[in-house]
Computed example of a mutant assay.
Amino acid sequence: MSKPVFVLLHGAWHSPKCWDRLITELEKAGYSAFAPALPSSGSNPPVPDWNADIDIIRSTVSDLVQKHDVIIVMHSFSGMTGGTALEGLDKEACFSKGLKGGVVRLIYMAAFLVPEGSQHSPHGTRDNMLPDMKTGIVTFAPEGAKDMFYQDLDDDAVAELAKDLQPQSFGVFWSTTTYAAWRYVPTTYIECTGDRPSTHAAAQYLLETAKASGTHKIERIIKVDSGHSPFISKPEWSAHTLIKEAGGQV
């Protein structure tokens, strides 16, 4: 069988460039990876909700499953959009349509794993948001990047990465999930133990809540001693882990 293809979904404030180190390692091992640009990050004017992100994810994956098995890797906020965008794209559903491929695994990397009907924040409020978030777009101060995203990287590396942070459209935080792909597709969660304590605790809570909510296919939880973005700080480890979860040899 041919190797599955990875689709890498970046989180809020980021662009596909954040995956460059991981893509290099995956390609060394003979795997293909696609990192679509999600419009809510860097859009000018800002988008009003996450529908454009959902459309990009669905169109990217829909094209690939015509011929390939696909593994979706979600980081941080894209767990919400990725989890809700994949209805009808799992392997069984694609097989019933006569397609050669389908989504065969989800990998959440310190990402939101949430049930149907979830919002980051109730519409019209700033609940659960950072103090400096304002309507329209949310810019991220470079001096906050290390604490928020890159806890295990040195200051020079963080300064370079912060240059690529994008304004984030505010409306996505009020959007609501309509589907939970982890109920239907085998799922791995990568738990980053060196993340912000509150973020790490939130991830554990989301996993426990999801498992208790009913049907699910959360098969494995992998812990790594890293900050919020192991695909940047530990690209070789991340690639090896993803390949292993894909059923490949490392």
Rank of each mutant, 00 (worst) to 15 (best):
T241I: 12
T199C: 04
A29M: 09
H228F: 10
Q204F: 02
K211I: 15
P48H: 11
L113D: 06
T188F: 09
S15R: 07
V138S: 09
L206S: 05
L130Q: 13
S76A: 14
V47K: 02
L9S: 04
T60G: 00
W237Y: 15
E116L: 10
L165M: 13
V172G: 05
H14C: 07
L89W: 04
A145R: 01
D127P: 00
E87L: 11
I222V: 15
A141T: 04
K97F: 04
P16M: 12
M129H: 03
F77T: 07
Q168T: 11
K244T: 11
K67A: 13
W13I: 08
M1V: 09
S238I: 12
F149S: 09
M74C: 06
F231Q: 08
Q119C: 09
G98V: 13
S15D: 09
Q66L: 15
G247R: 07
V138D: 06
L161N: 05
A35S: 10
V7H: 01
V103L: 05
D164A: 14
H240W: 03
A246H: 04
T125D: 11
A37H: 07
L64K: 05
Y184M: 05
R126W: 01
I232K: 03
M109F: 09
E160N: 10
A181H: 03
K234D: 07
N51C: 09
D155I: 11
P36D: 13
G101M: 08
P142R: 12
P131S: 09
F231H: 12
K100P: 00
I107F: 05
H14M: 08
F6C: 07
I243S: 00
P48T: 12
K97S: 08
G136I: 01
H68T: 06
L130W: 14
D225E: 14
S175H: 01
V158D: 04
A162Q: 06
I232R: 05
L8A: 05
C94E: 10
G82M: 08
A203T: 10
F173L: 10
D132C: 03
H120M: 10
D195A: 15
W174G: 06
H14K: 05
S15H: 07
D53E: 09
L153W: 07
G247M: 11
D90V: 07
G194H: 10
T199M: 07
V114M: 11
I23T: 14
G83F: 05
